[in-house]
Design a protein around this nucleic acid. Sequence first.
RNA 1: GGUCUCAUGGCCGAGCGGUUAGGCACCGGUCUGCAAAACCGUCUACAGCAGUUCGAAUCUGCUUGAGACCUCCA
Length: 487
Amino acid sequence: MENQKKLQIYNSLTGKKELFVPLHDNYVGMYVCGPTLYSEPHMGNMRTFINFDLIYRYLLHLGYRVKYVRNITDAGHITNSAGYEEDSIGKAARLEQVQSLEIVYKYNLKFQELQRIYNLLSPSIEPTATGHIQEQIEIIEQILQNGYAYVVNGSVYFDTQKYMQDFNYGILSGRKVEELSTETRSLNAQDEKRFFADFALWKKANPEDMQIWRSPWGDGNPGWHIECTAMSTKYLGKQFDIHGGGMDLKFPHHEDEIAQSCGSFGCNPAKVWMHANMLNVNGQKMSKSFENYFLPKEIIDGTTSLFKKAYSANVIRFFMMQAHYRSTLDFTESALDAAEKGLSRLSEGIKLVEKITVSDKSSFDVQGVIQNFYEAMNDDFNAPILIANLFDAVKFVNLINDGKETISSDDRALLDKEMNGFIYDVLGVELKTASSHSKLNPVMDLVMDLRQQARQNKDWTTSDKIRNALEEAGIVVKDGKEGTTWS
RNA sequence: GGUCUCAUGGCCGAGCGGUUAGGCACCGGUCUGCAAAACCGUCUACAGCAGUUCGAAUCUGCUUGAGACCUCCA
């Protein structure tokens, strides 16, 4: 609880780390932009969700009651301002010759599965855009009523120029409309917008649209940004603590969300805006359009051509935790191998804590070691530092095991609790021991017994023969101090 | 073109003016029938040039290189 008061978060809105003070004591409202389910989320998408899972977990660890809302975008958004282009979900549906919501349902099942595999905690609620059309319409009406939008031919557009008279458009992204206008995207003849920076709140339906809703302005589809405004307001209120998402949503999506909230309620929806950085492949952003992506499932199954072997979801998660959420991260084979070995070291250390012998007192500052865990995370969720500190703790544990340091009974209990808490609860890394090979066990017991006999007779030829044969079968035999193990 | 990031030892990756980041690899050691594993120890980098400062990886300017956003994007 003491540590609640020390959490600093980098706020994209101010560009600074700020002391986190929730709007309501002990409660945190957090909204994170979720996936558009027109395809299976790729590893880059997952990184953002994993990072916000870390943030959610640490807030919970600090004792906050957190309402975590992450939307599911199941209404495709018409990309072309002229309105003749298909929406992304509709396009996928047409390709597979099914209806839009079948596509969403299909990929949502995949997404849910990925969340289980990568050990993500479920948000408090995952509202869908199509389930909140009425709420979206109401906010559009409010914006119209306030004079920050206009209706043209069955569509509604946000009036950026009018808005700029009263509010700062560009407050989040730092963009200046004058600079934006130098870009070549001039209004074309059939464009209904009055100003190039205006964006659609409601789009008149096209005949081929798969999903169409009734509205006061005629049949149509909601604009891209309005769903988040509607759902965050419904579940968290007009103002809440944290709004997060990927860096690439900063502009225009989040900027426009702010405009919509200010335009309807007169206030910025979130006190703190957080942006997770991108996952790179060979230095370039992983992206569907670049076609340089791989799927979260492929790396676990070892079916992506990028890597020779498969990695467990835990290793992937741990690997990601070793980079700060605001830094880009590149996936490379050697880095993943390093993470795999590092995780195993951490894992061994954790297992050892409860076994080490205790002394009258500790020879090192256990409380200080633990406080370092908190300080790392209190500094804008710095998981890489937390992990470094956990490795320091592991070193102490090993030194105690070697009789070079001592620990008291109370300190051991404390260290055990906190190390486990930070690894399992905060980092969300599971260190499960290898699954038990129930059928193999009795066989291996026999084999190991035979080899042990050979070793006792100093029949190294036989014992090495067994070891080599097992190795070829993928079973590694280790002769430790306290007996032989295999895995 | 505009706006903005970033450049760290063999690899990954922290760092926000002075202190060992950490992991992996390498090397040395302990252990071991041998090996593997495990553990301990070691390795001291900050793109280039100039400046500010008692002191800079960390601040300023310039140069070079990479990337993001400005269009759907996590």
